[in-house]
Computed example of a mutant assay.
Amino acid sequence: MTDDLVFYTHPMSRGRIVRWMLEEVGAPYRTELLGYGDTMKGEAYRAVNPMGKVPALCHGATTVTEVAAILAYLADRFPEAGLAPEPAAADRGPYYRWLFFSAGPLEAAVTNKVLGVTVPDEPRMRGMVGYGSLEAVLDTLEGAVAGAEYVAGGRFSAADLYLAAHLGWGMQFGTIPKRPAFETYAGRHLARPAAVRAREIDDGLLAQQAGGA
């Protein structure tokens, strides 16, 4: 039943990452499109996510919000897709590390850059910021992906998906520098058939919205 997985999103949101994951998983799902400032903040959707933001995923009686949580949930709920190492595998550690590195230090550092937030150089103040500095985040990430096809063992995982999506989006809009290691790593994964399908779906929805405006 397509109603078993219900995906709440907007085609120009972080939901694009979840769309890619859903296409990788291959299970049928239904998309519920929400508008910024109207249905997204409405009472009906706030019953799903009180934050009034997308994406969100409902799977039967289970509701999951936050991109990293949704990716981790789908990887574990649909193990046949092979998007996470086995729970007892040694690669599970790096998988969690880089999945949540994207959700934490990377997103926070890039967001602060976009907003013009500068962390003071005073050591005590810098220590209060979990990511330390944008350069530290980018250098750490470059060390993880340079010359590496995957960040968690020898196969593609949800951690690669999240990192590649962040890097691709950031380099496209100039919030992340186009370092060669980033371009190689992200380009490889963004060319996956599921990633291409997901972009085509969301780009088509954007075109429909523009045509109906």
Results as ranks from 00 to 15, higher is better:
residue 85 P to M: 08
residue 77 R to D: 10
residue 64 V to I: 15
residue 117 V to Y: 10
residue 129 V to E: 03
residue 133 S to W: 02
residue 113 K to W: 00
residue 104 G to Y: 06
residue 105 P to D: 12
residue 128 M to C: 09
residue 127 G to M: 00
residue 123 P to K: 13
residue 131 Y to E: 09
residue 128 M to E: 10
residue 105 P to T: 08
residue 146 A to W: 07
residue 136 A to G: 13
residue 131 Y to M: 08
residue 76 D to I: 01
residue 99 L to S: 07
residue 68 A to Q: 05
residue 125 M to E: 13
residue 70 I to K: 04
residue 83 L to R: 14
residue 89 A to S: 15
residue 121 D to A: 15
residue 74 L to W: 03
residue 110 V to A: 01
residue 141 L to T: 07
residue 106 L to M: 15
residue 123 P to I: 14
residue 69 A to I: 04
residue 104 G to K: 07
residue 89 A to D: 11
residue 72 A to T: 13
residue 144 A to F: 13
residue 73 Y to Q: 06
residue 116 G to I: 05
residue 115 L to P: 00
residue 93 G to M: 10
residue 65 T to N: 04
residue 81 A to L: 11
residue 101 F to I: 11
residue 99 L to P: 08
residue 99 L to F: 14
residue 84 A to N: 09
residue 113 K to R: 11
residue 111 T to C: 02
residue 78 F to G: 09
residue 95 Y to L: 01
residue 115 L to V: 03
residue 114 V to T: 08
residue 103 A to Y: 10
residue 111 T to Q: 03
residue 141 L to E: 05
residue 99 L to T: 09
residue 108 A to Q: 11
residue 66 E to W: 08
residue 147 G to H: 13
residue 97 R to S: 02
residue 95 Y to Q: 02
residue 61 A to T: 13
residue 63 T to L: 04
residue 104 G to Q: 06
residue 127 G to P: 05
residue 78 F to R: 10
residue 114 V to F: 03
residue 104 G to A: 10
residue 62 T to C: 03
residue 80 E to C: 11
residue 93 G to Q: 11
residue 110 V to R: 01
residue 114 V to N: 04
residue 68 A to P: 01
residue 145 V to G: 10
residue 87 P to Y: 14
residue 129 V to Y: 06
residue 60 G to I: 04
residue 111 T to V: 02
residue 122 E to A: 15
residue 132 G to E: 08
residue 73 Y to C: 06
residue 96 Y to L: 15
residue 86 E to P: 00
residue 145 V to M: 13
residue 85 P to Q: 09
residue 127 G to F: 01
residue 130 G to T: 12
residue 115 L to M: 11
residue 78 F to D: 08
residue 138 L to Q: 06
residue 89 A to Q: 02
residue 63 T to D: 06
residue 89 A to F: 00
residue 80 E to Q: 15
residue 147 G to P: 14
residue 139 D to V: 09
residue 62 T to A: 05
residue 101 F to S: 08
residue 140 T to C: 06
residue 92 R to A: 00
residue 108 A to R: 12
residue 110 V to Y: 01
residue 100 F to Q: 15
residue 75 A to M: 05
residue 117 V to T: 11
residue 125 M to R: 12
residue 148 A to I: 02
residue 141 L to V: 09
residue 136 A to F: 04
residue 91 D to V: 00
residue 135 E to C: 01
residue 93 G to N: 08
residue 87 P to R: 14
residue 102 S to Y: 03
residue 130 G to K: 10
residue 81 A to T: 13
residue 98 W to C: 01
residue 141 L to M: 14
residue 124 R to D: 15
residue 109 A to M: 12
residue 75 A to Y: 02
residue 65 T to K: 02
residue 100 F to K: 14
residue 59 H to R: 06
residue 101 F to T: 06
residue 142 E to T: 12
residue 102 S to F: 03
residue 114 V to K: 10
residue 83 L to S: 14
residue 69 A to W: 03
residue 112 N to S: 12
residue 67 V to I: 12
residue 83 L to F: 13
residue 119 V to Q: 03
residue 102 S to W: 07
residue 67 V to P: 01
residue 107 E to P: 04
residue 66 E to Y: 07
